[in-house]
């Protein structure tokens, strides 16, 4: 097992608070409309590299919508239109000259419900890297599969059954398989939309530890309904309400010393 959960989380947070803050994603005056409805209202926030940023807020406040802006998943919603700017490492991700598929390779996503392909564990991981021409079939690919599974902390459990269908794993294992699949394409940023809400506490703990491990190499943005989870794993926490970004701060400061009345009401359970 990895480091003790809570102390590990604190250690990591301390490291990153004092580490140099590099802006990974820059969001400026981002507004999003579903048809007439304004789902995100002029959001401005910077996401820092190698940190875990948690998005919290009541249901329907726009957390998923914001998250899906970062890898342009909202492009798939026909009624959706966007104003404002999002830059990843200084590159406008909504630049018409950029291929949206390339954006999604750089900025991977893990979903609420584990959604492995109904293929073998091996194929689940190998498929996308092969399609992206990152590796060749054979040894190189085998190595990547092993590396990704190790990265997601799943290798020991499945190394003897790589040909087993990914859908035959337990929920927690499936979610780690999905994470392994995401890191196999070597993204820069990983978006996670309530990745543990379909899991039992034990699997949740495993995945939380995994995120703390992953942030050494990736920038992670996580949507969560679970405030304890945000407090446990994140370095930065953002509170959203009715499409607006109400407060965004270092996690410790955010929970101990909320600046806004709304935030305080939410984290003390007086609302939402």
């Amino acid at each position: 097992m990895k480091k003790d959960l809570v102390s590990g989380a604190l250690d990591n947070r301390k490291e990153s608070i004092y580490a140099e803050d590099i802006v990974k994603i820059k969001t400026q005056n981002l507004s999003l409309y579903y048809g007439e409805k304004e789902a995100l209202k002029s959001i401005t926030m910077d996401i820092y590299a190698n940190k875990i940023t948690a998005l919290i807020g009541p249901s329907g406040c726009g957390k998923s919508t914001l998250l899906r802006c970062f890898n342009r998943m909202n492009d798939l919603v026909p009624s959706c239109s966007i104003k404002g700017l999002i830059e990843a490492d200084g590159n406008n991700i909504y630049d018409p000259k950029i291929d949206v598929v390339a954006v999604r390779k750089k900025i991977g996503m893990v979903f609420q419900q584990p959604n492995p392909f109904p293929k073998s564990i091996y194929e689940n991981i190998a498929y996308a890297p092969l399609m992206h021409d990152m590796v060749k079939k054979g040894k190189e690919c085998d190595e990547l599969v092993e590396k990704s599974l190790r990265g997601a902390g799943l290798w020991e459990e499945v190394k003897d059954q790589l040909q087993k269908p990914g859908t035959a794993l337990s929920g927690g294992q499936q979610q780690r398989l999905c994470i392994a699949r995401t890191i196999a394409v070597e993204p820069d940023i990983i978006l996670m939309d309530e990745p543990t809400s379909a899991l039992d506490p034990l699997s949740t703990k495993v995945i939380e530890n995994l995120m703390l491990e992953l942030k050494k190499h990736y920038t992670i943005i996580i949507v969560t309904h679970n405030m304890q989870q945000a407090a446990r794993v994140s370095d930065k926490t953002a509170f959203m309400y009715l499409g607006e970004l109400i407060e965004y701060n270092d996690t410790e400061e955010f929970f101990v010393n909320p600046k806004e009345k709304l935030t305080e009401a939410y984290i003390t359970g007086k609302m939402g």
């Binding site: 998943m73 954006v103 750089k106 959604n115 392909f117 498929y127 399609m131 699949r181 995401t182």
Partner: peptide, 23 residues
């Protein structure tokens, strides 16, 4: 075919054609 399969592919940066053909 569950929508989550298509979403998974999109999230991995696969093209529509790859997702449709192989998944």
């Amino acid at each position: 075919v569950p929508e989550s399969i298509r979403q998974a592919g999109i999230g991995l940066g696969l093209t529509k054609w790859q997702i449709t053909r192989d998944h």
